[in-house]
């Protein structure tokens, strides 16, 4: 076991993948000499050489498109998209090519790409550096979408993503890059497509992923002061979503709150609420609630605290499903 930050854990996973399979390549802008703008690939170019850790031209579609060609040749490229908001020039190659080639060719071509995408806000940055575009990709058949929330998962999941024969979009919770945790480099990981119950509880199921798992855990801890027991689920995988774990939890608690930074409309929270309603209808004590980013462009940094769900907004939704006073009912005592 070693203490390391989430970003170092990803780097350790990449190093291990490069060691284990000489057809693994890293591609991206500034990932070589600089080690990436977040230093995730720090030192890997010197260790594995410029043929395997490739500083590419500044062209996202080019990165993903050439990675596809490398896949035709048997290579397993791990592409870094420098920031969430920079992925859109590659959107066509991702959804029209990467996602569809295996089905299009009736299984003849596999595209085992991994796309690493730092995502999410609350880092005080400028426009295009704080977005949560996961729903676009989870909506697209043929892609897998995952996101770790801890250094241990960051390490295990990047290795599983690279080993997968499917294309995997690996969203990195950039505000948690510097969070430290124990990492067992030889741990047997939970499968890539399974959710994890990170805190057990009996009253409310709080579903989070990526950067908001830590916030959800804080909210669960705070709720104990009021005698509310919250079960927190870290989804880990956004396509597929482990609905069996969710179903079991909600059947137990009868209440569910789903949180994500992405805007609410068309977001994954709606899909989860629909499936929970379908599968747990007779166990539900209250309508499923969502705490999400607002349906607006990501705001300037001075306003981002209003956009990114925080502990208080999560607990407000918990009050709603618990039938307690909340922002929608107002204060009955006043």
């Amino acid at each position: 076991m070693t203490q390391m930050t989430l970003s170092k854990a990803i780097g350790a996973g990449l190093r291990r993948a490069l060691q284990d399979d000489d057809h693994v390549l890293l591609m991206g802008e500034d990932i070589g000499e600089l080690g990436g703008v977040f230093r995730v690939t720090d030192g890997l170019k010197h260790e594995f050489g410029p043929e395997r850790v490739i500083d590419t031209p500044l062209a996202e579609s080019g990165i993903v498109g050439t990675a596809i060609g490398l896949a035709f040749r048997g290579y397993r490229a791990v592409c870094e998209i420098q920031f969430d908001g920079f992925i859109y020039p590659a959107f066509d190659q991702i959804v029209a090519q990467v996602a569809k080639l295996h089905a299009r060719t009736r299984g003849a071509v596999t595209v085992p790409l991994t796309l690493r995408v730092p995502y999410g806000g609350a880092i005080g940055s400028v426009e295009h550096h704080s977005e949560s575009p996961e729903a676009y990709f989870a909506h697209t058949a043929g892609l897998r979408v995952v996101t770790p929330s801890t250094p241990q998962d960051a390490y295990s999941m990047i290795r599983m993503a690279i080993a997968s024969n499917d294309p995997v979009i690996y969203f990195e919770p950039k505000r948690r890059y510097w969070s430290k945790g124990e990492v067992d480099l030889e741990a047997v990981p939970l499968p890539l497509d399974k959710a994890r119950i990170v805190r057990e509880g009996t009253d409310v199921t709080l579903i989070a992923y990526g950067p908001l798992v830590a916030t959800a855990l804080d909210a669960a801890e705070a709720a104990t002061d009021e005698g509310i027991s919250i079960e927190v689920i870290d989804l880990r995988s956004l396509s597929p979503i482990d609905f069996d774990t969710i179903e079991d939890s909600v059947n137990k608690t009868g209440r569910v709150v789903i949180v994500h930074e992405a805007a609410q409309f068309g977001g994954l929270g709606g899909e989860i609420a629909a499936v929970v309603t379908d599968r747990c209808f007779y166990s539900l004590e209250a309508p499923p609630q969502r705490v999400t980013g607002l349906n607006v462009p990501y705001p300037p940094a001075k306003l981002e605290d209003h956009f990114v769900p925080d502990l208080d907004r999560m607990l407000d939704a918990v009050d709603r499903v618990m039938g307690r006073e909340n922002s929608l009912t107002g204060w009955s005592a006043r």
């Binding site: 993903v64 050439t66 596809i68 060609g69 035709f72 190659q93 090519q97 071509v109």
Partner: peptide, 26 residues
């Protein structure tokens, strides 16, 4: 594609030029 060393056609215009370039890098 691998029986004739020819990818099946890209309908999205120009997309395949990147695939060819990546293949050549391989």
């Amino acid at each position: 594609p691998f029986t004739v060393n020819m990818a099946t056609p890209a309908v999205i215009i120009g997309a395949q030029t990147l695939h060819a370039t990546g293949y050549a890098m391989g």
